[in-house]
Design a protein around this nucleic acid. Structure first.
Length: 432
RNA sequence: GGUCCCAUGGUCAAGUGGUCAAGACGCAGCCCUCUCAAGGCUGAAUCACGAGUUCGACUCUCGUUGGGACUACCA
């Protein structure tokens, strides 16, 4: 098989070489210990507490080290796009005082490592798929959905690992002529990785996780899809290319990604990229009706939506403080010792992060909130209340004068033992 | 089913072979107080289970159980 020829047949329009991209996106000119992190939401417009949790880690890691925190929109699934989602994401995080240094923005991209929408990075992805094909590490797969489905059912019946690998990867051995014929016939196809893993006896791989330490897993042996039939890359492939060329140093993501880590390891290796440092966080949990922990779900748990806190009128700073107590167990101790320092001064470390899913605790949030609000000057708080009321209780905002608001807020706040009545704006106004 | 992750009170957790097993939230009681919110004091409550290693295991190893994630041309 002439892989060079195959790659030209498949990607005739790709002119750039990997080396071109390497020089287009050189290493960032930042100090050696500075961290580059990113938030990579899919543009569904739904941003939840888990996103904020992760974003907070990213933001702290980058800004604490003098690095860069950027926003990349992972819109490789065209079915999911929701209009205006990017603005929502930026605004929501902005409300909680999390700001991006570069990446997708409300008025277009900023930064030298773009474009920051995966949907605009097609040529780059294709260049690297082409390169893999040239090296015999990727191939077009013409199997139909039905064929794959049949293989799966037979695999399940035979208690084998489902998937396309080894001898099940029927398109692996296609000749150039067969590929050409299938192409001429207008058959739809995906691009698959030709995995080097051994399905019968997968080798053990070890990855150092920033939070969890050494992870041991079996190597990948699946010929995973890297380019879908529509030419758009899968998350796995886009992740490898993007985080390499955007020079991400730390990839913070939820533990649900743990099981696809072997795929990423093989992809980075085959592409010749250095692996970033992965930081797999625990997932926020909740106690269900039966007393079991379960992942917060956006349908059943209103407190998962960021808007929940906004509507309730929790001060963003309170939510930040709460998240920090969940994020780093030694934060509360630090806060007690340094009641007046901004929380940015806290030396956040990934090593101190919990590996198991933390349970969301509204009681704790309320308590943290009381303490936080007491530290915020009355006039600032009045401004917060006013803008909150304007949005959620317009009928009230006329009744209260600034003067009155200030007086109410100032009640008993002085002295060594300030009053701590207030938790959130809605509660305050209910009271009034 | 397979693979991987996780396991200290109701919750968040400290702890890395020898501790009376921190601390915080919540809960109960008492004190302070005109009332409430705070604050102070006190209390109930935890190492999932079973083997092993060891003079000694919450800590190390192996099993078991339980919970979770993944197992897509979704991220």
């Amino acid at each position: 098989m002439d892989f060079n020829k195959l790659s030209d047949i498949l990607f005739p329009r790709i002119e750039k070489t990997p080396a071109d991209y390497e020089s287009m996106f050189p290493a960032r000119g930042i100090p050696g210990d500075a961290k580059v992190t990113r938030l990579g939401p899919s543009p569904t417009g739904f941003i939840h507490l888990g996103n904020l949790y992760g974003a907070f880690v990213d933001e702290r890691l980058a800004h604490q080290s003098g690095g860069v925190f950027y926003l990349r929109i992972e819109d490789t699934d065209d079915k999911r796009y929701v209009e205006g989602a990017v603005d929502t994401i930026i605004d929501s995080l902005d409300f909680f005082d999390i700001h991006f240094d570069e990446g997708a923005g409300k008025d277009g991209d900023t930064g030298d490592y773009g474009p920051y929408y995966q949907s605009s990075r097609g040529p780059l992805y294709q260049c690297f798929v082409k390169e893999l094909v040239r090296k015999g590490l990727a191939y077009p797969c013409f199997m139909t959905e039905e064929e794959i489905g049949e293989i799966r059912t037979s695999q399940e019946a035979g208690k084998e690992t489902p998937g396309i690998y080894g001898s099940y990867a029927q398109s692996r051995g296609l000749t150039l002529e067969q590929v050409q014929a299938a192409l001429d016939a207008g058959k739809s196809y995906v691009m698959r990785l030709r995995s080097g893993g051994d399905p019968k006896d997968p080798a053990e791989i070890k990855v150092e996780d920033g939070i969890r330490g050494t992870l041991t897993m079996p190597e990948n042996f699946q010929d995973v899809v890297i380019l879908k039939a529509n030419g758009i890359p899968t998350y796995h492939f886009a992740h490898a290319c993007d985080d390499h060329f955007m020079r991400t140093t730390h990839v913070v993501r939820g533990e649900e990604w743990l099981s696809s880590l072997p795929i990423h390891v093989e992809l980075f290796e085959k592409l010749g990229f250095d692996l970033p440092i992965y930081c797999h966080t625990g997932v926020l949990m909740k106690l269900d009706e039966n007393g079991n922990k379960r992942k917060l779900s956006k349908r059943k748990d209103p407190e998962l939506a960021l808007d929940f806190y906004k509507e309730k009128g929790y001060h963003p700073q309170a939510v930040r403080e709460y998240l920090l107590t969940v994020l780093n167990s030694n934060y509360e101790e630090w806060r007690t010792a340094n009641p007046d320092l901004p929380c940015e001064d806290f030396p956040f470390t990934i090593e101190k992060m919990s590996t198991s899913g933390a349970l969301f605790d509204l009681n704790k949030l309320n308590d943290v909130s009381k303490d936080t609000l007491v530290r915020i000057p009355a006039d600032e708080l009045a401004g917060f209340l006013r803008s909150w009321a304007a949005e959620y209780r317009p009928e009230l905002s006329d009744i209260l004068s600034d003067d009155m608001l200030l007086k109410i807020l100032d009640l008993g706040r002085d002295g060594k033992k300030p009053r701590k009545d207030f938790i959130c704006a809605s509660q305050m106004f209910d009271f009034i």
